[in-house]
Simulated assay, not measured.
Amino acid sequence: MLVWAILVGLSFPVVGLMSELPPLLLTALRFAIACAGLYPLARRSANFVPRRQSLLLYALMGACLAGFFAAMFWAAHHATALSMATLYVTVPLLAFLLGRGLRVEAQGWRLPAILALGAVGALGLAVAEGWQQGGELSFGLGEAVFFAGCLSSALYPVLSRWGLATGRLPESAAVRTFWSLGLGGVLVGALGLATEPLEHLANMTALDLALLVYLGLCSSALTFWLMQRATAALTPGVVTAYGYLVPFVSMLLLFIRSPQQIGWVWLPGSLTVLLAMVLLMRHERPSPRLG
């Protein structure tokens, strides 16, 4: 999950290098490339072809991915970046609560306390970035839609863990990743075809295509595969808690590119996130591996 956080944090600068293209259709292509990269690995599994009950669960997981990306892209034009970053820190706590509902999270106070500490640190980093960029914190329709997307994002690892615990999903992380990304890509693509002009994809340059292949293989296939592997050994709350490191990685990249932006305003959030992650790795032991 540490590798996952680094890969996700590195993906944001890569996305910034791309031309302005239809985001939903671009995401569908990205998922298609990810599935193409995962197919040789997933096809080796004896459980590659899903059963009926597995297919329904894969469809729900794909809907979670489609819901999050659709909400994110729509909210990007109707909500401030600071508000979206602030709402996203709720994902680990939401995953923990949803996991408790499906009985894939253990009772206790320690993990919720660590998640809350990490949320405070990530919120501090979001506020620091918003303060430097002049962003404002608000809550309206755009923020409400993005919060619904955060719920979808939190539900994805919970459904995966529940599917493993009940025997509905196979042991192979590659198979789980392949089918959830595949069905999610179909749903995102259908939504994109209904709402975005297909001809705008013709503006894609060779650089855009190269970056899209990188994002599909490294930032989608590899990251979701790592998450699925971690879900078999860690609870959803712990898995999603590593998302607190993503803004920290992005902050380090910002400092590398623009050292003059280093200031004390980043320090409280950074230290709080690091403390939360140390506590998480020190006190949370992997649960018995499922599958």
Rank of each mutant, 00 (worst) to 15 (best):
F12Y: 09
T27C: 10
P40D: 02
A42S: 05
R44W: 09
A59D: 02
A63F: 11
L65C: 07
A66H: 04
G67D: 07
F68H: 05
W74T: 10
A79G: 05
T80C: 03
M84A: 08
T86C: 00
L87V: 09
V91D: 03
F96P: 06
R103I: 15
E105C: 14
A106T: 14
G108N: 11
W109N: 11
L111M: 12
L111F: 11
P112M: 14
A113V: 15
L115I: 14
G121T: 15
L125H: 05
A128R: 01
G140F: 13
G149N: 03
L155K: 03
P157F: 07
L159V: 08
G163T: 10
T166C: 07
P170L: 01
V186I: 11
G192F: 12
A194Y: 06
E196A: 14
L198G: 04
E199N: 08
E199D: 09
L215N: 01
A230N: 01
T231M: 07
T235R: 12
T235I: 14
V238A: 11
T240N: 07
L245I: 08
V249Q: 01
S250V: 15
F255Y: 05
I256Y: 04
I262Y: 03
P268F: 13
V273T: 06
M277I: 15
L279H: 07
R282T: 14
R282S: 15
P286K: 07
P286Q: 11
